[in-house]
C-alpha cells in the first residue's frame, strides 16, 4: 500500500542545489509542475517514473513510503505503481478499441466481471473527457488526438489502476480539463501534471516551480487563487466555446464575451 512518494531533491544544470531539500506527495494529492520550456519539467517526471536513485543527471532520489522502492516494481509488470503519459506517448496498436482494452485488462484484472466493469468505466471516463465519443469498434489508429489522450488517461487511471499517474502536458490535445480534474479527484491517487495551463495549475493542491533544471519554489494554491480558479475556468470556457463555434462554421457576436470585456 503506497501512502507517500518522497523526492529527495538534487541540483540544477548549473550545479546549484534545489530550493527545497525534499517534497512529500501524499495519496490524493493533485500537483502541477510548472516552468518555462526547457526548465526541466519532463526530466523531473522521468526521475519519478524511473525511480531515480542519484543515478540521473539531477542527482534526485525517489522514496516510496520513505524507503527505496522494492525491486519488484521494476521486475513485475503488475506491481509497477506508476503510469506515465508523456507528450510522445501514443497507442501503436491497430486493434479495435474493444479488443485493445480487453487485451490490456486481461493482464491487470483476473476477475471476469470486474474486468468488464473496468472496461465500461474506462470508456465512459474517456467519453466524458472528449467531445467526440469513442466507439468500441473503431480502430485505435483511427482515434483523433483528443480521443487518444482521453483514452490514455482513462486507461491509466482505471485499468492500470496505479496509485501514481504522471501526465505530461495533457492540455494540448483538446480534452475537457475541469471535467478531467473532477473525475480524477474521485480516485485516491497521486496525480502529477506537467503543465503550462493556468486552469490545471489552479485546480491543483500545489505547484512545483522549475527553472534551469532546478526546483525554485513550491507554491500551495492559496485562498485568493482558489477564488481566481473559477474565474479562470469561466474565461477558459468562453474561449473553448468560441473555438467550438468557429470549428462549426458559426459567426461570433459580442454577446459571447458579455461579462468579460
Amino acid at each position: 500500500m503506497i501512502d507517500t512518494i518522497t523526492i529527495l531533491t538534487g541540483f540544477g544544470r548549473s550545479g546549484e542545489l534545489e530550493a527545497v531539500p525534499r517534497i512529500d506527495l501524499k495519496m490524493g494529492d493533485v500537483v502541477s509542475i510548472v516552468g518555462p520550456t526547457g526548465s526541466g519539467k519532463t526530466t523531473f517526471i522521468n526521475d519519478i517514473e524511473l525511480f531515480a536513485d542519484a543515478n540521473t543527471p539531477t542527482g534526485r532520489r525517489i522514496l516510496i513510503n520513505g524507503e527505496r522502492p522494492p525491486v519488484e516494481y521494476r521486475d513485475d509488470p503488475a506491481r509497477n505503481p506508476i503510469a506515465l503519459i508523456t507528450q510522445h506517448t501514443t497507442f501503436l496498436s491497430d486493434l479495435p478499441v474493444n479488443e485493445f482494452l480487453h487485451t490490456h485488462a486481461r493482464i491487470r484484472i483476473t476477475n471476469l466481471a470486474e474486468r468488464e466493469t473496468a472496461i465500461e468505466r474506462t470508456l465512459s471516463f474517456a467519453n466524458q473527457l472528449t467531445g467526440e465519443p469513442i466507439a468500441l469498434e473503431s480502430r485505435m489508429t483511427e482515434l483523433s488526438g483528443g480521443q487518444t489522450r482521453a483514452l490514455l488517461i482513462a486507461d491509466a487511471t482505471i485499468i492500470c489502476n496505479t496509485p501514481i499517474v504522471l501526465l505530461d502536458e495533457v492540455e494540448n490535445a483538446g480534452i475537457h480539463r475541469t471535467r478531467a480534474l473532477e473525475l480524477l479527484r474521485q480516485y485516491r491517487k497521486i496525480f502529477i501534471f506537467v503543465t503550462h495551463d493556468p486552469r490545471i495549475a489552479l485546480l491543483s493542491d500545489y505547484r512545483i516551480v522549475m527553472q534551469r533544471g532546478r526546483i525554485t519554489q513550491v507554491l500551495h494554491t492559496d485562498a485568493e487563487e482558489r477564488q481566481l480558479a473559477s474565474v479562470v475556468s469561466r474565461l477558459d470556457d468562453i474561449l473553448s466555446s468560441l473555438r467550438d463555434k468557429i470549428r462549426l462554421g458559426e459567426r461570433l457576436t459580442s454577446l459571447e464575451l458579455e461579462g468579460v470585456a
Binding site: N46, P77, F91, I107
Partner: peptide, 17 residues
Amino acid sequence: IDRVSQAEREVFRARIQ
C-alpha cells in the same frame, strides 16, 4: 518505454513473461 501507452508497455512486459 516512454513512447508507448502504459497499456502497451504493460502488455509487452506480460507477453515477455
